[in-house]
Protein backbone atom coordinates (compact mmCIF):
# COMPACT_ATOMS: atom_id res chain seq x y z
CA UNK A 1 0.00 0.00 0.00
CA UNK A 2 2.83 2.35 0.90
CA UNK A 3 4.58 1.90 -2.39
CA UNK A 4 1.37 2.65 -4.19
CA UNK A 5 0.97 5.95 -2.45
CA UNK A 6 4.53 6.84 -3.35
CA UNK A 7 3.83 5.83 -6.91
CA UNK A 8 0.78 8.04 -7.05
CA UNK A 9 2.73 11.00 -5.75
CA UNK A 10 5.54 10.35 -8.11
CA UNK A 11 3.23 10.46 -11.06
CA UNK A 12 0.97 13.25 -10.02
CA UNK A 13 3.05 15.67 -12.01
CA UNK A 14 3.19 14.45 -15.58
CA UNK A 15 6.36 16.41 -16.22
CA UNK A 16 8.30 14.48 -13.57
CA UNK A 17 10.72 12.06 -15.10
CA UNK A 18 10.03 13.45 -18.54
CA UNK A 19 11.79 16.80 -18.53
CA UNK A 20 11.19 18.52 -21.83
CA UNK A 21 14.47 19.56 -23.29
CA UNK A 22 14.51 23.36 -22.97
CA UNK A 23 13.56 25.22 -26.10
CA UNK A 24 11.95 22.27 -27.89
CA UNK A 25 8.76 22.65 -29.86
CA UNK A 26 10.12 25.29 -32.22
CA UNK A 27 8.04 25.30 -35.41
CA UNK A 28 9.38 26.97 -38.55
CA UNK A 29 7.24 27.30 -41.66
CA UNK A 30 9.26 28.56 -44.62
CA UNK A 31 7.60 29.85 -47.74
CA UNK A 32 5.06 27.06 -47.69
CA UNK A 33 2.58 26.60 -50.50
CA UNK A 34 0.04 23.78 -50.59
CA UNK A 35 -2.04 22.99 -53.65
CA UNK A 36 -4.48 20.19 -54.30
CA UNK A 37 -5.46 18.76 -57.65
CA UNK A 38 -4.14 19.82 -61.02
CA UNK A 39 -5.18 21.78 -64.10
CA UNK A 40 -8.48 23.60 -63.87
CA UNK A 41 -9.30 21.81 -60.60
CA UNK A 42 -6.10 23.12 -59.04
CA UNK A 43 -6.82 24.63 -55.67
CA UNK A 44 -4.44 26.81 -53.70
CA UNK A 45 -5.20 25.80 -50.10
CA UNK A 46 -2.23 27.70 -48.64
CA UNK A 47 -0.20 30.32 -50.49
CA UNK A 48 3.39 31.31 -49.68
CA UNK A 49 3.26 31.41 -45.91
CA UNK A 50 6.17 31.81 -43.53
CA UNK A 51 5.83 31.53 -39.76
CA UNK A 52 8.08 31.13 -36.76
CA UNK A 53 6.37 29.68 -33.70
CA UNK A 54 8.51 29.89 -30.58
CA UNK A 55 8.93 26.99 -28.14
CA UNK A 56 6.14 27.00 -25.56
CA UNK A 57 4.06 29.50 -27.46
CA UNK A 58 0.27 29.20 -27.69
CA UNK A 59 -0.75 30.18 -31.20
CA UNK A 60 -4.32 30.27 -32.54
CA UNK A 61 -5.00 30.16 -36.25
CA UNK A 62 -8.27 31.98 -36.81
CA UNK A 63 -10.25 32.10 -40.01
CA UNK A 64 -13.49 31.25 -41.80
CA UNK A 65 -14.13 27.67 -42.87
CA UNK A 66 -12.33 26.67 -46.03
CA UNK A 67 -9.52 29.21 -45.59
CA UNK A 68 -6.88 26.52 -45.38
CA UNK A 69 -6.19 26.77 -41.66
CA UNK A 70 -6.63 23.04 -41.15
CA UNK A 71 -4.43 22.37 -44.17
CA UNK A 72 -1.69 24.50 -42.66
CA UNK A 73 -2.06 22.60 -39.37
CA UNK A 74 -1.98 19.29 -41.23
CA UNK A 75 1.30 20.28 -42.85
CA UNK A 76 2.82 20.66 -39.38
CA UNK A 77 1.27 17.33 -38.37
CA UNK A 78 2.74 15.73 -41.47
CA UNK A 79 -0.52 14.56 -43.07
CA UNK A 80 -0.04 16.97 -45.97
CA UNK A 81 3.28 17.70 -47.63
CA UNK A 82 3.78 21.23 -48.90
CA UNK A 83 3.94 21.63 -52.67
CA UNK A 84 6.63 24.22 -52.08
CA UNK A 85 8.66 25.25 -49.06
CA UNK A 86 9.52 23.55 -45.80
CA UNK A 87 8.01 22.79 -42.41
CA UNK A 88 10.35 21.88 -39.60
CA UNK A 89 10.02 21.23 -35.89
CA UNK A 90 13.15 21.69 -33.79
CA UNK A 91 15.27 21.86 -36.96
CA UNK A 92 13.97 18.55 -38.20
CA UNK A 93 12.06 18.59 -41.45
CA UNK A 94 8.50 17.26 -41.14
CA UNK A 95 8.10 14.31 -43.50
CA UNK A 96 5.12 12.55 -41.93
CA UNK A 97 3.04 12.27 -38.78
CA UNK A 98 4.93 11.34 -35.63
CA UNK A 99 4.63 11.08 -31.87
CA UNK A 100 6.66 14.28 -31.30
CA UNK A 101 3.62 16.21 -32.52
CA UNK A 102 0.43 15.30 -30.67
CA UNK A 103 -2.79 15.80 -32.59
CA UNK A 104 -6.28 16.50 -31.23
CA UNK A 105 -9.11 16.27 -33.73
CA UNK A 106 -12.54 17.87 -33.76
CA UNK A 107 -14.40 14.75 -32.63
CA UNK A 108 -14.87 10.99 -32.94
CA UNK A 109 -11.17 10.29 -33.09
CA UNK A 110 -10.96 7.94 -30.09
CA UNK A 111 -10.72 4.23 -30.85
CA UNK A 112 -14.27 3.07 -30.06
CA UNK A 113 -13.15 -0.52 -29.36
CA UNK A 114 -10.60 0.51 -26.75
CA UNK A 115 -11.38 1.56 -23.21
CA UNK A 116 -10.48 5.07 -22.11
CA UNK A 117 -7.37 3.71 -20.42
CA UNK A 118 -6.27 1.80 -23.52
CA UNK A 119 -6.92 4.83 -25.71
CA UNK A 120 -4.62 6.94 -23.56
CA UNK A 121 -1.99 4.18 -23.32
CA UNK A 122 -1.98 3.67 -27.10
CA UNK A 123 0.98 5.98 -27.82
CA UNK A 124 3.27 4.52 -25.15
CA UNK A 125 2.15 1.02 -26.16
CA UNK A 126 3.06 1.36 -29.84
CA UNK A 127 6.31 2.97 -28.75
CA UNK A 128 7.14 -0.39 -27.15
CA UNK A 129 6.85 0.55 -23.49
CA UNK A 130 6.09 -2.20 -20.99
CA UNK A 131 2.54 -2.90 -19.82
CA UNK A 132 3.39 -1.57 -16.37
CA UNK A 133 4.77 1.67 -17.79
CA UNK A 134 1.78 2.09 -20.08
CA UNK A 135 -0.56 1.56 -17.15
CA UNK A 136 1.20 4.09 -15.00
CA UNK A 137 1.31 6.70 -17.79
CA UNK A 138 -2.38 6.10 -18.47
CA UNK A 139 -3.18 6.55 -14.78
CA UNK A 140 -1.23 9.79 -14.65
CA UNK A 141 -3.11 11.28 -17.58
CA UNK A 142 -6.47 9.89 -16.50
CA UNK A 143 -5.97 11.75 -13.28
CA UNK A 144 -4.82 14.88 -15.06
CA UNK A 145 -8.03 15.11 -17.05
CA UNK A 146 -10.13 13.94 -14.08
CA UNK A 147 -11.43 10.77 -15.68
CA UNK A 148 -9.91 8.07 -13.45
CA UNK A 149 -13.40 6.78 -12.67
CA UNK A 150 -14.09 6.28 -16.37
CA UNK A 151 -10.89 4.38 -17.14
CA UNK A 152 -12.69 1.16 -18.08
CA UNK A 153 -15.53 2.75 -20.02
CA UNK A 154 -15.68 2.92 -23.79
CA UNK A 155 -15.60 6.29 -25.58
CA UNK A 156 -19.25 6.17 -26.63
CA UNK A 157 -20.24 5.99 -22.97
CA UNK A 158 -18.73 9.42 -22.31
CA UNK A 159 -20.03 12.91 -23.06
CA UNK A 160 -18.48 14.94 -25.88
CA UNK A 161 -16.44 17.07 -23.47
CA UNK A 162 -15.07 14.04 -21.68
CA UNK A 163 -14.16 12.43 -25.00
CA UNK A 164 -12.15 15.50 -25.97
CA UNK A 165 -10.36 15.43 -22.61
CA UNK A 166 -9.39 11.84 -23.39
CA UNK A 167 -8.25 13.00 -26.84
CA UNK A 168 -5.97 15.59 -25.24
CA UNK A 169 -4.68 13.10 -22.66
CA UNK A 170 -3.98 10.54 -25.40
CA UNK A 171 -1.98 13.06 -27.44
CA UNK A 172 0.00 14.18 -24.37
CA UNK A 173 0.78 10.63 -23.21
CA UNK A 174 3.60 10.58 -25.78
CA UNK A 175 5.11 13.68 -24.15
CA UNK A 176 5.22 15.51 -27.48
CA UNK A 177 6.94 18.87 -27.87
CA UNK A 178 4.06 20.26 -29.93
CA UNK A 179 0.29 19.89 -29.51
CA UNK A 180 -1.75 20.47 -32.66
CA UNK A 181 -5.47 21.03 -32.20
CA UNK A 182 -7.96 21.18 -35.05
CA UNK A 183 -11.11 22.91 -33.76
CA UNK A 184 -11.11 20.52 -30.79
CA UNK A 185 -14.00 22.21 -28.98
CA UNK A 186 -16.04 23.05 -32.08
CA UNK A 187 -18.62 20.34 -31.47
CA UNK A 188 -19.13 21.09 -27.78
CA UNK A 189 -21.85 23.21 -26.21
CA UNK A 190 -20.90 26.73 -25.08
CA UNK A 191 -20.62 25.96 -21.33
CA UNK A 192 -18.53 22.84 -21.80
CA UNK A 193 -16.33 24.71 -24.25
CA UNK A 194 -15.50 27.38 -21.66
CA UNK A 195 -14.55 24.78 -19.08
CA UNK A 196 -12.45 22.93 -21.64
CA UNK A 197 -10.61 26.11 -22.59
CA UNK A 198 -9.61 26.70 -18.98
CA UNK A 199 -8.61 23.03 -18.63
CA UNK A 200 -6.43 23.32 -21.69
CA UNK A 201 -4.71 26.46 -20.42
CA UNK A 202 -3.90 24.69 -17.13
CA UNK A 203 -2.45 21.72 -18.97
CA UNK A 204 -0.46 24.01 -21.26
CA UNK A 205 0.93 25.89 -18.25
CA UNK A 206 2.01 22.61 -16.65
CA UNK A 207 3.60 21.19 -19.76
CA UNK A 208 5.13 24.31 -21.24
CA UNK A 209 4.38 22.74 -24.60
CA UNK A 210 3.94 24.56 -27.92
CA UNK A 211 0.28 24.64 -28.93
CA UNK A 212 -1.10 25.40 -32.39
CA UNK A 213 -4.87 25.70 -32.12
CA UNK A 214 -7.16 26.09 -35.11
CA UNK A 215 -10.54 27.75 -34.55
CA UNK A 216 -13.12 29.97 -36.22
CA UNK A 217 -14.24 31.38 -32.86
CA UNK A 218 -12.72 34.83 -32.23
CA UNK A 219 -13.35 34.78 -28.46
CA UNK A 220 -11.79 31.36 -28.13
CA UNK A 221 -8.70 32.43 -30.07
CA UNK A 222 -8.11 35.57 -27.99
CA UNK A 223 -8.85 33.90 -24.66
CA UNK A 224 -6.36 31.09 -25.31
CA UNK A 225 -3.55 32.48 -27.40
CA UNK A 226 -0.31 34.40 -27.01
CA UNK A 227 -0.59 35.13 -30.68
CA UNK A 228 -3.54 35.07 -33.08
CA UNK A 229 -2.91 34.42 -36.77
CA UNK A 230 -5.78 35.42 -39.02
CA UNK A 231 -6.08 33.51 -42.27
CA UNK A 232 -8.00 34.53 -45.35
CA UNK A 233 -9.63 32.29 -47.90
CA UNK A 234 -8.77 31.82 -51.59
CA UNK A 235 -5.87 31.89 -51.67
CA UNK A 236 -5.32 30.77 -48.08
CA UNK A 237 -2.72 32.96 -46.43
CA UNK A 238 -1.98 34.59 -43.09
CA UNK A 239 -3.15 38.21 -43.30
CA UNK A 240 -2.57 39.27 -39.70
CA UNK A 241 -0.29 38.23 -36.86
CA UNK A 242 -1.54 39.76 -33.61
CA UNK A 243 0.01 39.59 -30.14
CA UNK A 244 -2.55 39.09 -27.35
CA UNK A 245 -1.66 41.55 -24.58
CA UNK A 246 -3.74 39.86 -21.88
CA UNK A 247 -1.84 38.69 -18.77
CA UNK A 248 -1.68 35.07 -17.63
CA UNK A 249 -3.21 33.16 -16.00
CA UNK A 250 -6.23 34.01 -18.07
CA UNK A 251 -9.57 34.48 -16.41
CA UNK A 252 -12.93 34.22 -18.19
CA UNK A 253 -13.72 37.65 -16.77
CA UNK A 254 -11.07 39.09 -19.10
CA UNK A 255 -13.52 38.57 -21.93
CA UNK A 256 -15.05 41.92 -21.08
CA UNK A 257 -11.77 43.75 -20.50
CA UNK A 258 -10.89 46.65 -22.79
CA UNK A 259 -7.82 44.97 -24.27
CA UNK A 260 -9.85 41.89 -25.11
CA UNK A 261 -12.65 43.81 -26.76
CA UNK A 262 -10.27 46.00 -28.72
CA UNK A 263 -8.45 42.98 -30.09
CA UNK A 264 -11.73 41.26 -30.84
CA UNK A 265 -12.91 44.29 -32.78
CA UNK A 266 -9.69 44.30 -34.78
CA UNK A 267 -9.98 40.59 -35.54
CA UNK A 268 -13.60 40.85 -36.57
CA UNK A 269 -12.87 43.77 -38.90
CA UNK A 270 -10.09 41.88 -40.60
CA UNK A 271 -12.18 38.73 -40.95
CA UNK A 272 -15.16 40.68 -42.17
CA UNK A 273 -13.15 42.49 -44.83
CA UNK A 274 -11.73 39.17 -45.99
CA UNK A 275 -15.06 37.35 -45.96
CA UNK A 276 -16.67 40.13 -48.00
CA UNK A 277 -13.82 40.04 -50.49
CA UNK A 278 -14.00 36.25 -50.76
CA UNK A 279 -17.77 36.39 -51.11
CA UNK A 280 -17.56 38.94 -53.92
CA UNK A 281 -14.83 36.94 -55.58
CA UNK A 282 -17.01 33.84 -55.54
CA UNK A 283 -19.98 35.69 -57.00
CA UNK A 284 -18.11 37.51 -59.74
Amino acid sequence: MNTQVVNLKEHINPRDGHPKSPGSGHIVIEDVEITFGAGAERNHAVTRTSLDIKPGEFVCILGPSGCGKSTLLNSIAGYVSPTHGNVSVDDRKVVGPGPDRGMVFQQYSLFPWKTIRDNIAFGPKVAGRSTVECGSIANTFLEMVGLTKFANKYPAELSGGMQQRVGIARALANYPSVLLMDEPFGALDAQTRLVMQENLLNIWADFGITVVFVTHDVDEAIFLADRVLIMSASPGSVIADLEVPLPRPRDPAMAISEDFLELKKLCLERIRAESTRAFEQQNS
Binding site: G98, M103, A171
Partner: peptide, 17 residues
Protein backbone atom coordinates in the same frame (compact mmCIF):
# COMPACT_ATOMS: atom_id res chain seq x y z
CA UNK B 1 -12.80 6.11 -40.44
CA UNK B 2 -9.75 7.90 -41.84
CA UNK B 3 -9.51 10.09 -38.74
CA UNK B 4 -8.72 6.99 -36.65
CA UNK B 5 -5.91 6.00 -39.00
CA UNK B 6 -4.57 9.55 -38.81
CA UNK B 7 -4.81 9.55 -35.03
CA UNK B 8 -2.89 6.28 -34.85
CA UNK B 9 -0.22 7.65 -37.19
CA UNK B 10 0.26 10.77 -35.10
CA UNK B 11 0.56 8.58 -32.00
CA UNK B 12 3.49 6.83 -33.64
CA UNK B 13 1.89 3.56 -34.77
CA UNK B 14 3.58 1.58 -37.54
CA UNK B 15 1.68 0.18 -40.51
CA UNK B 16 1.39 -3.18 -38.82
CA UNK B 17 0.21 -1.62 -35.57
Amino acid sequence: PEVLVRAAKSLGASRLQ
